[in-house]
Design a binder for these strands. Structure first.
Lengths: 342, 342
DNA sequence: TTGTAGGCGTTATCAA
DNA sequence: TTGATAACGCCTACAA
């Protein structure tokens, strides 16, 4: 049987109030009483019931995480960051995968609310979510991670996608590429829209027109991207470069290129978003935009904990923390070819 | 303010008992009462407080997951599997990273216990954990994932590591390699020991002696493995092949090999454990043992839920579910070289 | 400094 | 079929 505070109190010969105070170390307790209680608790192996405590204190020391898919390296790393700082402060995390699905996201929001988490870190699947807005209005501490739709009033920890994408595409152009295809995620998701924006700006600044034929959507999926890449390859005038906007899709594109024996970077150059550990091991080593994914997680969680602890005082926290990505140059954009030629 | 059952009951003009029954759809409630309650609940936006409910029902509909590191692809995938089946049954998961650290693991076990999860899926960091044993004795439904120490009496969902390793090493030998180095994880962790066992058996069956110089430990870490691989390279008689026992370490080894311009497979062949999506994109494409990681997760969770729902009846469930890994042959072991020679 | 008693929001019992 | 009322295990006024 599970031991309760009552058991401890009885064995220690004190009231539950005293036992509670002794264990919680607050309020008045005599030294003897405290020691006695602690000893008994230790002896019978008492461990408090967090549920009962939560009902009383209205704190669960749990935070919810809703992301699209833990399997995506960016989120894997971010979640690890979140968990690390949560743990340090005595919080646990509930992990939810929404799969870019608004309904699933909302269902999770519901249980998250019912389970009374102290705060929520979410990477939204769409531009808005009325249920989420309701929760925020209701006072739930929320931090938006990676995706920061304008419509949602909450603290955001995001990446400067426009500049990251700009840098990547500009790099391609500087290396002589002109027909640059882009494989986007899902229109409407902020990260996708922003990376696309960066792409367009880079083209514009270099006096290249956006060719609608060269923009396709991989929907954040490997298989879909594989197909889409094949379409690129089979064009009568295929692109001479590809900008692929996340890691899963980059893998898909690389796979398709590989299967069709397209030589990289001779025939098609490629630059990815996300810089996985294995990027240098590719054939050829992959040039990619590195995101500080772990930091996105740690910062999001630190921010959330601050909001939680600050209480209602500064509810209007609508800070936007923007982290810079960085282009890691290797060989998949034809860096070596270009040098040789020059 | 959060609405409570009392609010609903009052507005609907019934007692909380009736309201509770109407919402929970059990017991006797008249049609009118039910409809009234449901309508009011909907209208005022009532959502039950899971904490209060848990205190009463002694069920949290939450399961704990303790793994070493979500960042390791095997666990990423397994956790996704767990979460998927948990969700279908209305459960949430609390994610904990123990980092192969017994103390951290135990701390997590404590809070997991205090938070009264309905069950636990754990990949143990060591051969035993007295606190875990206590929890199991106490009746907590537990499933051991991936690592199944003999000493722990619980249902286990594991991989046949011996045969996986055997197959990998045997493959190397069949391709003419004799001096096969092995990079292990951490001695004492079942998966490491079992993969090492498979290595030894394969050598033995082929009349090759185990050379202690050729067995090293990467401790499941990329950096450590990088160092260790460098040591291999710098030997006066370096190995002609490497068997690396998980993905993180394989990446480390590959990185070291790459940095030192060791030609794969001409100088050193390599076979890994875990078959990441990017394996075919390596230079050369990586031969590796594929583990059904997602299935390990789904099966572990299904099993756990069965135990939870079965209640105390069949507490002695000590089943051991063993999943088969599979060698995926590509080019990093010199498959092509050998063919040419033959 | 201690103990009694009330309450957190549900569910469950049982008499009406 | 309904509705007081008692749990669930803990915290915390408040009175002693």
């Amino acid at each position: 049987m599970r031991k309760t505070l009552k058991d401890v109190a009885k064995k220690a010969g004190v009231s539950t109030a005293v036992a509670s105070r002794a264990l919680g170390s607050y309020g008045y307790v005599s030294k003897e009483a405290r020691e006695k209680v602690l000893k008994v608790a230790e002896k019978i192996g008492y461990q408090p019931d967090a549920i009962a405590r939560s009902l009383m204190t209205q704190k669960t020391h749990t935070i919810g995480i809703i992301i699209s898919d833990i399997t995506t390296i960016f989120f894997t790393s971010a979640v690890r960051g979140i968990e690390d700082v949560a743990r340090r402060d005595g919080y646990n995390v509930i992990l939810c995968n929404s799969d870019e699905n608004l309904q699933k996201e909302t269902e999770y929001l519901k249980v998250i609310y019912e389970k009374k988490v102290d705060g929520l870190i979410i990477s939204m699947s769409a531009k808005t979510n009325s249920y989420l807005k309701k929760l925020i209005r209701g006072g739930l501490p929320v931090v938006l991670l990676d995706r920061g739709p304008k419509e949602i009033k909450a603290t955001k920890v995001i990446i400067d996608n426009v500049s990251g994408a700009y840098e990547a595409v500009n790099h391609l152009i500087k290396l002589g590429r002109r027909r640059i295809g882009v494989i986007n995620g899902i229109a409407g998701v902020t990260t996708s829209d922003e990376r696309f924006e960066g792409y367009k700006r880079a083209l514009k600044d270099n006096d290249i027109l956006v060719d609608p034929e060269l923009v396709k959507y991989g929907e954040f999926k490997m298989e879909k991207t594989r197909q889409v890449t094949r379409q690129f390859i089979e064009m009568t005038h295929p692109p001479d470069a590809l900008f692929v906007t996340n890691e899963v899709m980059t893998t898909g594109a690389l796979l398709a290129l590989n299967e069709n024996n397209v030589r990289i970077p001779e025939e098609i150059a490629i630059v990815g978003f996300d810089d996985p550990v294995w990027a240098p091991l590719m054939k050829p080593p992959l040039t990619a935009v590195r995101q500080p994914s772990y930091s996105v997680g740690t910062i999001a969680c630190q921010t959330l904990l601050q909001i939680i602890n600050k209480g209602d005082r500064e509810r209007t926290s609508e800070e936007e923390i923007v982290l810079k990505p960085k282009l890691i140059t290797r060989e998949s954009c034809g860096e070596k070819l270009f040098k040789k030629r020059a």
